[in-house]
Every structure is written in structure tokens, then in C-alpha cells.
Design a protein around this nucleic acid. Structure first.
Lengths: 261, 261
DNA sequence: CTCCCATATTGATTCAAATCAAATACGGCG
DNA sequence: CGCCGTATTTGATTTGAATCAATATGGGAG
């Protein structure tokens, strides 16, 4: 696989794993009254890639987890909070970000259904980033202590490894790409992630603001806005506020890898 | 812990884990004739953080691994190569990098004694980055398939999680910091990693070129060179080619978090 | 020991993107 | 339904860093 393709693929592959058996319910708020069983989850396809798919249905059969509903604008966890659990997104959209003392912050990722969040907490037993719901969402709570099954451990390592590869892609983007290349890469990445979830790859709603896109891409919000306008003028996309329609995927790829010299 | 401190700490904590028992020797080249035992390794302190330290000495006792010597300029592995093993650095210095089609490349990390490399390969069974020895080095080969012990699995997850946190720090650096802040953060990070290994935090030799530093920091080599000169004029450091002497740690921290407005 | 090539420094100029500054458009709420 | 605050677009200007260019320095090969 080419490196560019690898970057594009990275997010699509950031798939989910499932927890070991039913979790203890967490103290208090907004959790589902009963655990949800993995066998009836409509994210099964996305949630059980590679190793844990068909061949391990015996394991799958016994799995269930506690859900938690989140309102838009609510934090799943904050940097510094203690680490207990991983979170698999059932529905919704999240952003993660880290903050510097002086207030500058950097969006480090956007997350959608089937993806795992919270792995930053494993190493130090506390989270290093904030995670915020960008729309009303629902997550599965996967207590880390309950991940004992060896197949689960391996699966988690795969997910974490892919996250490392995805981060390499972001570093490449931030370190070597020009503004227009960054935005093109961003749109292509979103497109691939949507199609992997059964949504149209050519038409979707952005859940984040221009400012959040800019933060993620290391650009000012004005630059993001201008680039959307320019891409539209060039016939690559159609933009109306947060609604995006992609007209020319090859054209965006050409912008991204700078073939348009 | 503050975010800035977290960034600085991230690399220091990127510590090693040990493999499960003696590994089969690999076909052919430059490996040590006999496996090296963990109990006699002088990186033990660095290699066995947290959970696997004193309390797990029973596990430690049985551990040994195959070593491999590397010459400066040699690749440990290339992007696309199949994944078998993780590598713990015994001695030496490495850089990892990813390459885009058009030749642009990005240094994604520098690695020194006690750190683990190769975790990018776990997710897809093939490596996504190149890893190159920047000086004559020696690594321990840790076949991934041999990591069965649950404590080892947990330990690996901790190491990978810290790598994720470290990457967040790099994204913050690339996404929000100005050139001088990036170089200050880089020097402070190196300083902390050296001191954790028993070297002076105030005086060290850079193993990488200005171009490699620039690539890692998302800057041109000329900018890196100019900033070294400016830091020297400002009395923060003393530079003579690759030899660095730090004179003012607080000053560098002030540059990094932009307190000098 | 000396030559040679890669590496590093420094200067001049250009350029991409940030910042500063309005104006406009939405979306949520009373 | 209209108001208000937030988000977005667009324009003007500044600026930080890249690029282009010319030396200088040093380490390694022979």
C-alpha cells in the first residue's frame, strides 16, 4: 500500500474491539438500564475486524457492555481525570484535544461510530486529553480491568497500533503539507470513514466548526474557510456551511499529494 | 501534571518492556551468539518501569532475548516490511520516518536506549515507517508472538499508550507552536531523556543533522540553524556543530510556553 | 595528512498563512 | 417570528518561515 493510501486508510481501520463479558454498572448517571449484548449490536461488522470476527463468535456470544448517553457539548472525560475504561462509540461524533498552559489548544482527533477512545489513559492511569461530544452520542463503557481474554488483549494492541500509525499520518500532514493539501487530506479521510460506515462518501455534514478543523490541521479558521471557498470555485467540492458535497475525488487526491504543480 | 510537563515527560516515560523467555535465534546475520539475560542487563532500571519492576522479579528471572548489532546508516526495518518483532534499544540512537510519494518525508521520532520500536507494525502486520540507526547501535529482538504472559501484555499496552500521549505532544508542537517554541521544546525533551539515562541534561551530542531536526519539527534546516544561533546569542545555550550545552533551562521553558511576550 | 563532500551557517528575498478587520448568515431561543 | 450571539465569509495587511544563494566548516576516506 502506498503511504498516501495508508494515511487515508488509517482512520477507517481504527476499528473497535469488544469487552469481556457484562460490565458492572457505573455509579449513577445516564447509563442504559441493562447491558447491551454485542451479538445484537449493529456495529458488529465495524467493531470486530480481523481476528475477532467470525472465527471467534464463541467469545462474542458472551459479551455485553454498559452504555452511556451523552449530550452535545458534554465531556466524556477531561485531561487529568483518572483512567478506568475505554469507550467505544455507538452513535455520535467526538473530538479530542489537548491544552497548553497559555490556553492554546490542539484538536488531536475526530472520532465516529465504531472507534475506541480513552487509550491515552492506559499508560499513566490518567487521561492526557479532553474528549467532547460534538453531537448527541452514545458510547459503550469498557472497563479496562475486565479485558482479560488474550484475544481481547491482542485486539486492543492492534487498535492501539493503528492509532499510532494514524498519528504518524497526522504528523506528516502537520509537518510537511501545505494548507490546501491538509484540507484535501482531511476531506478524503472523512469521506473514507463515512463510506466505511455505510454513509455516502460524497455528501456529508461536518460536525465540527471551521475553528476546530483549523485546530486539527494547524491552520487558522479563516484559512480553512478560504480554502473551502477556493475548492468550490475549482469545482472540487460544494460547500454550504457544514454541508459538504464532494465532486472530484481524484482532484482532491491530486491536491493532496501535490501533483498539481 | 501540567500539559507542558506531560509533553516533556512523555518521552522520558517511553520505557521498555521485556520479552517472554529466550527467543529463537533469527536466520543469519549480526545477532549475538547467545541470548542476553534480562537480569544482567544494565538497562534493567529503565526497562522495567512500574508494574514489572521489583514485584515481578520472578518473571524477570526467566527472561532473555536475542541481540542484533546495527551499523550507523543501517535500517532496522523499512516501511512495508512484514512485522514479526518489537525492538528494544540497548545502545545507540535511531530515527523513524514516513515518506510521501513525492519524496517528502517526515521524521516521526528519535529513539534512544531503553525505548521500544516497531509497535507501528502490530495493527497491520507490516511496518508503516522506516527506522534507521543514527549511530552504531544494538537492539534486543522481541518476537511479538512470544509475548504471552498477561503482565507483559499489560506492560506493552502501557508503553503503547505512552507513545500515543507522546504523539499528542508532537501534534501540539507541530500544530500550535512557533519555530522557536518547537526548538526549545525539542531541546528540553532531549535533555530530560538524557538525564533519565544517567547522562548530563546540560551537555550532549546531537546524533541527528539539522535537516533531520527540521523534519521532525516541521521546519527547514536553515531555520533550525538560525534558531540555534539565536538561542546562543541570547545566552540560552552554547552550540558547536552537534555539541550542545544548555545554559538556561528556565529560559528555554519560557521560550517554549511563550511566556516571553 | 590532505582532499573532498556532506553539513552547517548566514544573508537576501519571496511567499504562504496568520492576523486584523468588517460584513454577513445561521440557528436557537424567547 | 424576530432577535441575538455564534459561526462564517471575505478583504487588507503583516509577518514568520521557506526558499534561493553563497560561503564556511569539519569529519571521514584514502
Amino acid at each position: 500500500m502506498s503511504v498516501t493510501a495508508a494515511i487515508l486508510e488509517a482512520n477507517r481501520r481504527r476499528l473497535t474491539l469488544v469487552p469481556r463479558n457484562a460490565c458492572a454498572k457505573r455509579a449513577g448517571d445516564k447509563v442504559a438500564p441493562f447491558p447491551t449484548r454485542c451479538t445484537t449490536c449493529n456495529l458488529r461488522e465495524l467493531c470486530l475486524p480481523c481476528g475477532l470476527a467470525a472465527s471467534d463468535s464463541d467469545l462474542l456470544g458472551g459479551l455485553a457492555y454498559t452504555r452511556k448517553r451523552m449530550k452535545r457539548g458534554e465531556f466524556l472525560f477531561r485531561a487529568g481525570a483518572g483512567f478506568d475504561s475505554l469507550y467505544a462509540i455507538r452513535t455520535g461524533f467526538f473530538k479530542s484535544s489537548v491544552v497548553l498552559e497559555d490556553g492554546r489548544d490542539q484538536v488531536t482527533g475526530f472520532h465516529m461510530a465504531g472507534e475506541i477512545m480513552g487509550m491515552d489513559g492506559i499508560g499513566t492511569d490518567s487521561h492526557s486529553a479532553d474528549v467532547l461530544a460534538l453531537e448527541d452520542s452514545e458510547v459503550c463503557i469498557i472497563p479496562y480491568a475486565h479485558l482479560e481474554e488474550a484475544r481481547m488483549q491482542r485486539q486492543l494492541q492492534k487498535v492501539m497500533s493503528r492509532e499510532l500509525v494514524r498519528d504518524q499520518g497526522v504528523m506528516l500532514l502537520l509537518g510537511t503539507m501545505k494548507a490546501e493539501e491538509r484540507l484535501a487530506a482531511f476531506l478524503l479521510n472523512l469521506s473514507q470513514r463515512f463510506v466505511a460506515r455505510g454513509f455516502s462518501p460524497l455528501e456529508f455534514h461536518l460536525r465540527m466548526t471551521r475553528e476546530e478543523i483549523g485546530s486539527y490541521l494547524g491552520l487558522s479558521l479563516e484559512t480553512v474557510s478560504r480554502l473551502f471557498s477556493r475548492f468550490q470555485e475549482d469545482g472540487l467540492i460544494q460547500v454550504q456551511q457544514k454541508h459538504i458535497r464532494i465532486h472530484d475525488i481524484p482532484g482532491l487526491k491530486a491536491v493532496m499529494i501535490h501533483l498539481n504543480d
